[in-house]
């Protein structure tokens, strides 16, 4: 188990370095950050001074090495655009994104599993048909369209929910939360649905097909033959087996929530890191963009590691083979 963990952490470091390298080299082609910073009437000498100050006159490898060396110490450089440390900017914005992604994940998981199980158990009910049809819409409509549609219905027409921003937030330590105020919670609803809907329908369809598969197995038939209650058969025996393959997909999908938040944050003017990233792209803020991509990569790595550990908790067959490979 410990060897497994160490191996995975080692792999994670390589993944992070690769992502850093690719993003860092890609952003060199996005544009010249200096021209956006100094303005039209700067002299060539001004530009060279600026380039030297930022270290942009150095070869690429040297620039990358400096970036990594500082990143390891938790320093991600100064944002070209705002002129403040990238770390501070991300720290300010991260709670907004994390709270949104967290709510969207809970929304996607709870409703995805619930509807997946329901539509698998009641295959012929009218509600199943309705849910399956609506889920097709959820899969095929682009996120921004769903967001705009929700804003139109609930903000413009019904005037129930705010159409942009986080509402009032409360600051606890370095963390600003929208969970503690009414307007904060209200502001979360529409972005959460927008961000989570696609994942929810995906999880629902996955759970449904896996559940149908499991319900056909011999051990479910045998569980029925033993006279176990429907509840024990469906939720004790079938659901647990359903969740094993579902965990993998869900892990990847939940990591994607943080990455996909960019679009939702843009639609709802949500002050999170995705919104920050979009602004940075416009002004070729290389340290900002590279740090953001590293952050997203970090999320994926953490989520995948958690998924692997979740397997051990759920499937006893893996525990045995892990012991076997160790010994």
């Amino acid at each position: 188990m410990l060897a497994f963990l160490i191996r995975r952490v080692f792999q994670a470091v390589i993944v992070m370095l690769t992502v850093a390298f690719i993003s860092f080299s890609l952003f060199r082609f996005v544009g010249d950050p200096i021209s956006t910073m100094v303005g039209q009437d700067a002299t060539i000498a001004d530009r060279q001074a600026m380039a030297r100050e930022l270290g942009l006159d150095q070869p690429f490898i040297v620039q990358f090495w400096r970036f990594i060396a500082k990143a390891v110490q938790g320093e991600f450089g100064i944002s070209y655009r705002v002129g403040r440390p990238v770390m501070d900017l991300i720290q300010e914005r991260l709670p907004a994104t994390l709270e949104l992604a967290f709510c969207a994940a809970i929304f996607a998981l709870v409703f995805g599993i619930f509807f997946g199980v329901y539509t698998a158990l009641r295959r012929d009910s009218w509600l199943t048909k309705v849910v399956m049809t609506v889920s097709l819409i959820g899969v095929s409509l682009p996120t921004f369209l769903i967001g705009i549609g929700l804003i139109y219905l609930f903000s413009v027409e019904l005037k129930w929910l705010p159409s942009f921003g986080r509402g009032e937030t409360v600051k606890i330590g370095g963390w600003t939360t929208g969970f503690l105020t009414e307007s904060g919670l209200k502001s979360l609803i529409l972005p959460t649905i927008t961000l989570g809907l696609f994942q929810m329908t995906l999880i629902m369809r996955l759970v449904r097909s896996e559940m149908l598969e499991v319900l056909r197995t011999d051990y479910i038939k045998f569980a029925r033959a033993r006279g176990l209650s429907d509840r024990a058969v469906h939720f004790g025996h079938a659901l647990k087996n359903t969740l094993i393959p579902v965990i993998t997909i869900m892990g990847i999908k939940l990591g994607a929530l943080v990455a996909f938040a960019i679009i939702t944050e843009t639609v709802f003017q949500w002050p999170g890191v995705g919104f920050l990233f979009i602004s940075s792209v416009q002004s070729v803020d290389v340290p900002m963009m590279a740090s953001y991509l590293l952050l997203v990569a970090l999320f994926f790595v953490i989520v995948n590691l958690t998924v692997d550990l979740a397997y051990f908790a759920v499937d006893p067959r893996l525990r045995i083979s892990a012991v076997a490979t160790r010994g």
Binding site: T217, D218, Y219, F222, A223, H237, K240, N241, V314, D315, P316, R317
Partner: peptide
Amino acid sequence: DPLTSLNPLY
């Protein structure tokens, strides 16, 4: 089939 009659997770 005894291989598939028992739930593998319990």
